[in-house]
């Protein structure tokens, strides 16, 4: 079988409920090796729930999830997955340095929490990738919002994962950090990584994205090349009416203002 075609993530008919409200109503989603897939949709469309079901943080009611070809229940090789949760801060209740936080992402590769030379080197590399090596010994409390996000991404990269799953990595990130994040992602993709991103809008990552999957009310309404917005359509807040949508359907509200 062609290695390129091997699915890294495969969801088939996945349903999930939060409380008693159905959030995912039969999602099919396949991400192949080396692909960069963006999951788009308005608030409450189920995109965060979909990625959180992939990493096992939301119990699914029906359907099947496979990671690297293994059924979810039996998948145990979490060092191959780098996860960037949706957070505005990397800080906890006690001060911690950038290095301390990024090191916690390396534990999946370290036996019994014992770190070797190679582990410390991997943590340093991850910090360099996001351009935070010069802040390694600083407390995360002293960082800006964009720098917090870079720390969270470095933490996911510390385990040198094959699959990166990111939940809104660009939320609340300044322009300079957005550029660094796009560059980081470009390096990862060039190195053969597979990426699944939840995004509110395509933004500066657009040129990197191979495929966009749009969710609405817990259903997939578009799966194909990213919808290219031009002119006024590209403005944030614009409701995007997609040609694939059935006639008379509600416009897909991906904009910030909808």
């Amino acid at each position: 079988m062609d290695a390129k075609a091997e699915p890294v993530i495969s969801l088939r008919g996945v349903r999930a409920e939060l409380g008693s409200r159905p959030v995912l109503r039969g999602i099919d989603l396949t991400v192949h090796r080396g692909e960069v897939v963006a999951l788009l949709g308005a608030n409450g469309s189920g995109k965060s729930t979909a990625v959180r079901s992939v990493i096992g943080q939301v119990p699914i009611g029906a359907g099947e999830i496979e990671l690297f070809g293994a059924p979810h229940r039996r998948f145990g090789d979490w060092a191959r997955v780098g996860y960037v949760p949706q957070r505005t801060t990397a800080a906890g209740g006690v001060p911690a340095t950038v290095t301390e936080i990024v090191t916690s992402g390396r534990l999946s590769r370290a036996r019994f929490g014992v770190l070797r030379k190679a582990d410390h080197a991997a943590v340093r590399r991850a910090l360099e990738l996001v351009g935070m090596a010069d802040r390694a010994k600083d407390s995360v409390d002293a960082l800006s919002g964009g720098q917090h996000q870079r720390v969270l991404i470095a933490r996911a990269l510390a385990a040198e994962p094959e699959l990166l799953i990111m939940d809104e990595p660009m939320a609340g990130v300044d322009l300079a950090s957005q550029e660094v994040l796009a560059q980081t992602l470009r390096t990862q993709v060039a190195g053969g990584a597979t990426v699944l991103l939840v995004l509110h809008e395509l933004g500066p990552l657009e040129p990197l994205i191979d495929r966009a999957v749009v969710l609405r009310d817990g259903c997939v309404t578009h799966d194909g090349p990213p919808p290219r917005a031009v002119g006024q359509h590209a403005l944030p807040g614009h409701d995007h009416v997609h040609p694939h949508a059935p006639a008379g359907a509600e416009p897909i509200r991906t904009g910030l203002l909808s």
Partner: peptide, 11 residues
């Protein structure tokens, strides 16, 4: 203690 959800995903 820092990030319980992330810790679960690291296995």
């Amino acid at each position: 203690s820092q990030d319980e959800e992330f810790a679960r995903v690291t296995g």
